[in-house]
Design a protein around this nucleic acid. Structure first.
Length: 628
DNA sequence: GCAAGGTC
């Protein structure tokens, strides 16, 4: 057997980058793609000096494209009427290569003549599992091939070389945790989906619909319904407040009540009378203090989705598909990342330099290079796999296909430059007064240096009208004082950035899949979106989510069945996540997790089945008389 | 006709 080592990455871009480094960045990299494999996958051939016992080796570096192996029920059970849905909790399953035969064949061909396999998948749980897929494929043709894993968290040259020199083993536990998750999602999702689809099929309007259940889609639906109920059940409350105005140097100053507002009208009237009786107000404190508006953190996927929706009014799914395209064209870095800190080794100035070509934000970038550059802030998250999202090269607007692509690219570029700029600086002035028994305050802001705000046009921070001069201890008769009243207002329907934030906080989906789950529950007809009218400035024009009658019915139906942990709440998913962590830490075995979780769901399933009448009645009621 | 997770 030749002294050959096969290296396999999780995606083509990593294979290319690693091959570039290991081959010494020489043009001697031979790249060829056998005609029968995916147009995206390339094999790179070169020589590299691995640590002992391998030494100087011939290397083929290639990649898969994410998962290669499909996990499904055996053929007999894939047909919907092949069995009772609850049998799917125990039905036999099998792993197949499915439509990835070309990629699997490529690995087999190369593995046949290799003495070792180096796994270069992303260093996260899913990557560990994908590594085992690659290993298992290679072993079908070369059972004795030695398997190693390269550990790397970015694709900088020195880091990659170090990873090649210090290979470790695949983390079997992490892979087992993922295997448990895959099996559970498959069995539970398929069982409940088939059952409830068939149950509700007889209801008018649902004859042709698939009523899917999934451990992520249902909690996502739950968030929408939850907010909808809070809006609907909201009872406004009346409140009263006192406002004091004073005109000085032609400036009208409004002093707000320290108590803000009270819900007792008589009390407010009594206090107001006491203020008036005092006639004069006394200035108790005049203060000016420096203040800052912090520049944003390096950009993560979740933030990109939230802000794309909030500032650009583009849905998270479209933002992600645009980001994907910008990435494959080499314009931005990898768009799926949880990291909000730049690696200290990265040459951020060089990236700023590229942006100087822009006619709009180029001057700002130039100014950074001329000395205004400041290192980005560090957030708390680091997935050890990818850097924050940033532009890797400048793109002229004409090179992009449409307006939304331009706007997403522009956002990413501006956000990056903002990170390399400095905080905005201002001065906050406050004047406190005592009027009778009550305290009031007025405040003003003077923006001294806009700094990052000049490029990050999405943040607003404006100087207010300056406060006239007041002197501590002075007394004056207010120009006007009166009682104001108002009503508490209901929260708005859920917006997409809010929904993403809830999913993120509750561990529903991953950065790469959250947008898909949202699209899925829309597609299934559980929720719909509409443009929010009027209302407060920031949110108007934005899409808001409301449940359909079907969506409301499902949540209500399962709630009434009375599970200990409702399927429309995030707790069950959280529990699964915790069990996965325990597998990773060696505190639980994969099979125990799968077994105990299946039993938990089997019990819920049987209970739901016993009460199927209830779910059906509620659903048909919601669908026939508008849910009320 | 089912899930969620990779990635193109």
């Amino acid at each position: 057997m030749p002294n050959k080592i096969l290296c396999v990455a999780e995606k083509p871009s990593i294979a290319r980058a690693v091959a570039g480094h290991l081959s010494g960045g020489q043009q001697s990299v031979v790249s060829f793609a056998p005609l029968d494999i995916s147009i995206f996958v390339k094999n790179f051939d070169f020589h590299y000096n691995f640590p002992p016992p391998w030494g100087s080796c011939q290397v083929t570096m290639t990649s898969v494209i994410g998962h290669t192996v499909e996990w499904d029920f055996t053929k007999d059970y894939q047909k919907w009427n092949s069995c009772e849905p609850h049998h799917l909790f125990d039905a036999p399953t099998e792993k197949t290569v499915g439509d990835r035969k070309d990629i699997a064949e490529n690995i087999k061909t190369e593995a046949r003549c290799s003495r070792a396999l180096f796994i270069w998948t992303d260093c996260d749980r899913e990557g560990e599992y994908i590594g085992t897929e690659v290993r298992d494929i290679a072993r079908t043709v070369n059972p004795n091939i030695e398997v190693k894993r390269a550990r790397f968290s970015n694709i900088e040259r020195a880091h990659i070389l170090r990873a090649a020199q210090h290979p470790v083993e695949l983390d079997e536990r992490q892979a087992q945790a993922v295997a448990a998750r895959i099996e559970l999602d498959l069995r539970i999702g398929a069982a409940f989906t088939r059952w409830q689809t068939k149950l509700l099929q007889s209801i008018e309007g649902l004859e042709q619909k698939v009523i899917s259940y999934g451990s992520c889609q249902f909690p996502t639906l739950g968030f929408v319904v939850d907010r909808y109920r809070r809006v609907k059940n909201f009872v406004p409350e009346q409140f009263w407040s006192i406002k004091v105005m004073h005109k000085r140097d032609d400036i009208n100053v409004t002093f707000n009540w320290d108590r803000n507002r009270l819900f007792d009208r008589m009390m407010v009237i009594v206090l107001f009378e006491k203020c008036l009786q005092a006639k004069k107000a006394r200035v108790t404190k005049v203060q000016k203090k420096p203040t800052k508006k912090w520049k944003p953190l390096p950009l993560t996927t979740v933030e990109l989705q939230k802000l794309g929706s909030r500032f650009l009014h583009i849905t998270s799914q479209e933002v992600m598909s645009i980001a994907e395209k910008l990435y494959t064209n080499g314009f931005i870095s990898y768009p799926r990342t949880e990291t909000d800190q730049f690696d200290p080794g990265m040459d951020l100035r060089a990236l700023c330099e590229k942006q100087t070509q822009s006619p709009t934000w180029g001057p700002f970038a130039q100014n950074l290079l001329n000395g205004a550059f400041e290192s980005p802030r560090n957030g708390r998250n680091n997935d050890k796999a990818h850097p924050p999202i940033h532009p890797v090269t400048y793109v002229t607007p004409n090179a992009l296909a449409n307006q939304n692509e331009r706007r997403v690219y522009e956002f990413i570029a501006r956000r990056f430059l903002a990170c390399c700029s400095s905080d905005a600086v201002g001065e906050q002035s406050t004047v406190d007064i005592q009027y009778g028994p009550e305290g009031f305050h007025a405040s003003g802001l003077r923006v001294i240096a806009r700094n990052y705000l000049d490029v990050y046009v999405y943040d607003k921070w404006e100087s207010s009208q300056p406060l006239p001069q007041f002197i501590e201890g002075e007394e004056f008769v207010p120009t006007e004082a009166n009682i104001t009243d108002g009503k508490t207002t209901p929260p708005g329907f859920l917006t997409e950035p809010e929904l993403i934030a809830l999913m993120d906080a509750n561990g529903i989906g991953t950065d790469a899949t959250m947008a898909d789950h949202i699209a899925k529950i829309k597609d299934r007809g559980y929720v719909f979106t509409r443009v929010r009218a009027g209302g407060d400035q920031q949110a108007s024009g934005m899409e808001e989510f409301a449940p359909s009658n079907l969506g409301s019915a499902l949540v209500e139906g399962y709630d009434q069945i009375g599970f200990e942990n409702s399927v429309s709440k995030p707790f069950l998913r959280k529990e699964m996540e915790e069990k996965m962590k325990k597998i990773c830490e060696g505190q639980m075995e994969r099979h125990d997790v799968v077994h105990s979780t299946i039993e938990q769901y089997r019990e819920m399933f049987l209970r739901a089945k016993q009460q199927s009448r209830l779910l059906k009645d509620i659903t048909s009621r919601y669908l026939t008389d508008d849910g009320v």
